[in-house]
Amino acid sequence: MDELELLKKDWQKGRIEFKSYSDSDIYPMLHKKSSSIVKTLFYISIGELVFWLLASVLPYVLSPTFREKLDISYENPLFIGLTILSYVIILTFIYLLFRSYRGISSTDSAKKLMESILRTRKVIKYYVIFNLSLFFLSIPLSLYFEYQDNPEFHQQIVEASTTQMLIFYIVSIVIAGIIILILLLFYRVIYGILLKRLNRNYKELKKLEV
């Protein structure tokens, strides 16, 4: 006989007596904390939102010098436009994230459930990429605004030699690059660990379609 048939015969016999939970055992179970992957993903995304919002707001609140400089920059319409744009994008992300979380349902098929979790993870990924690009862009932009609004800095740049400027550019790019690399690595590790099993199982299901 086919091995699986033998197993099925045995399985169907119900020879195994499982521990039977009573109503009073089950009631408290309903209100225990879940340890699901979606919940962890949700907390991570909230953490991301808070982290990046704080990163943009805190320097303004904490440092008077920074605030003063920023207040001058706010007189520049380009700066105001960019700030508004970045907040619109953040709000869009919050909406997208909310929508994709609502789309995750444990009653979908296994494949669809995995896909909606991966889609949510993608939204978070794009949010992080957006913030990193913003961070990267903010370096030349802030130099540009500084150049425009700060006569001292303007003078220094005008007087600087080509070599000095080159060193200045290289150092800023390298520092920004290192910071981005560290952050990217950090994200890779977090999501890599969290979604390892899901990715493996999703691949296994996808493999069948080929």
Partner: peptide, 16 residues
């Protein structure tokens, strides 16, 4: 039938 689906989804995907 519904239990099979949610049960398996939890075991395969959701459970940490």
């Amino acid at each position: 039938t519904w239990m099979y689906r949610v049960g398996l989804n939890t075991a395969i995907t959701l459970y940490r």
